[in-house]
Structure formats: structure tokens, C-alpha cells
């Protein structure tokens, strides 16, 4: 499970760029903060490398390690 905290997210989209499996896309909806946050479009592709969490400067992404089927 991937959580994007839209309260913390400022819409830099580093996650979209750096995800090796292209899990994220830029959302088309503005968040409450007035930015376009990432949308978890292809969660099934996630390999739990946590790179998006590392690259996110705002602690806005949490990738749970446990499988959530």
C-alpha cells in the first residue's frame, strides 16, 4: 500500500520522475494545498525500493513493506 499525504505534499513530483517502475503520475486534481500531487496510478508495479520516499523532500510518501492483498 502506498500512501501520499496530500497535507505534506507540495507537488514537486520528484517521485514521479525517480520511481524506477513509473508507479506515479501527476494528478489532475488540485490538492487542498493548491498543488498537483502525485497519483498512485500503477501500485501493482511497485517493487518497494522506497526510492520515492527517499527523494520526497516532504515526508509525504509512505510505502508499506507488508503486502496488502
Amino acid at each position: 500500500m502506498i500512501h501520499v499525504n496530500t497535507n505534506y505534499c507540495k507537488g514537486c513530483l520528484l517521485c514521479v520522475e525517480y520511481c524506477p517502475k513509473k508507479v506515479y503520475v501527476k494528478s489532475e486534481k488540485l490538492s487542498k494545498k493548491g498543488v498537483f500531487p502525485p497519483e498512485v496510478k500503477f501500485p501493482e508495479n511497485c517493487i518497494k525500493c522506497h526510492l520515492c520516499e527517499l527523494m520526497c523532500p516532504d515526508f509525504a510518501i509512505i510505502v508499506e513493506d507488508k503486502d496488502d492483498k
Binding site: 505534506y8 507540495k10 507537488g11 520528484l14 498543488v35 523532500p57 515526508f59 509525504a60
Partner: peptide, 11 residues
């Protein structure tokens, strides 16, 4: 959230 601007590397 932090006070840093969008895309700022400090976080």
C-alpha cells in the same frame, strides 16, 4: 508540513 518551498532539497 515543513516550511520549505516546493522542490527544496533541504527536506
Amino acid at each position: 508540513p515543513t516550511i520549505f518551498c516546493t522542490g527544496c532539497g533541504i527536506g
